[in-house]
Design a protein around this nucleic acid. Structure first.
Length: 197
DNA sequence: CACCCGATTATCT
DNA sequence: GATAATCGGGTGT
């Protein structure tokens, strides 16, 4: 029923996978009910990049980034928020991951609104902390294998034309801000930080 | 063990 | 546009 991406999908250059993930779908089964959304915005963070959590080598908290590709790396930030990354890098480097910055809800929207305490519309999942809360992602999902159909996994979604992909600098960091490693789908209203007048 | 700060968000003005 | 909320890991004493 779900067409799940296999591990080889994630064993490529991190920025290449970041672009390839646009249009794919994240599914989280909660209490038997699926919550899912199309990935519309990503950022690549790879080994040797001063803005990446893996820059200073492996520690207890970032070990997932050094583990098998296709697994989740979930971290807690600013005392309030979880962010979901997907481990992906080529065989030549030891670590790397992709931050999921925005989702377009497809399944279980009512459950997501409930998880977001009643917030509706684009605010459900147009930011990395927001989508983690909407899906119900917490640090318990760190290290989770996303290539098996269990509770949390990634499937095929919508096909994206390469001309629809916009590349910009990354958001919310102080190091290597200008590197073109943020990718999003053009004209998609769920992309983060858009004003909806 | 104390201190510092962050790949964010909500809620003000 | 500015800022508070809030907490775990990293770093140094």
């Amino acid at each position: 029923m779900f067409n799940i991406l296999n591990r080889s999908f994630f064993e490529r250059k991190t920025e290449e996978v970041a672009k390839a993930l646009l249009g794919k779908q994240i599914v989280h089964i909660v209490h038997g009910h699926p919550r899912a959304g199309i990935i519309v915005e990503t950022e690549a963070y790879f080994y040797g990049d001063p803005a990446s959590h893996c820059f200073k080598g492996m520690t207890k908290s970032n070990s997932a980034l050094f583990g098998p590709v296709g697994h989740a790396y979930v971290y807690f930030i600013y005392g309030n928020h979880y962010c979901l990354n997907i481990v992906a890098h080529s065989k030549e480097v030891p670590a790397g991951g992709i931050l999921i910055r925005a989702l377009e809800p497809t399944l279980g929207r009512d459950e997501m609104i409930e998880a977001r305490h009643g917030i509706t519309g684009y605010q459900i999942s147009n930011g990395p902390g927001k989508l983690a809360q909407a899906l119900g992602i917490t640090k318990t999902h760190n290290h989770k294998d996303l290539t098996i159909q269990d509770s949390l996994f990634i499937t095929e979604g919508r096909s994206i034309n390469p001309s629809e992909i916009i590349t910009t600098g990354r958001i919310g960091i102080s190091q290597a801000k200008d590197k073109p490693l943020r990718f999003y789908i053009a004209n998609n209203p769920w992309v983060s930080q858009l004003k909806h007048t």
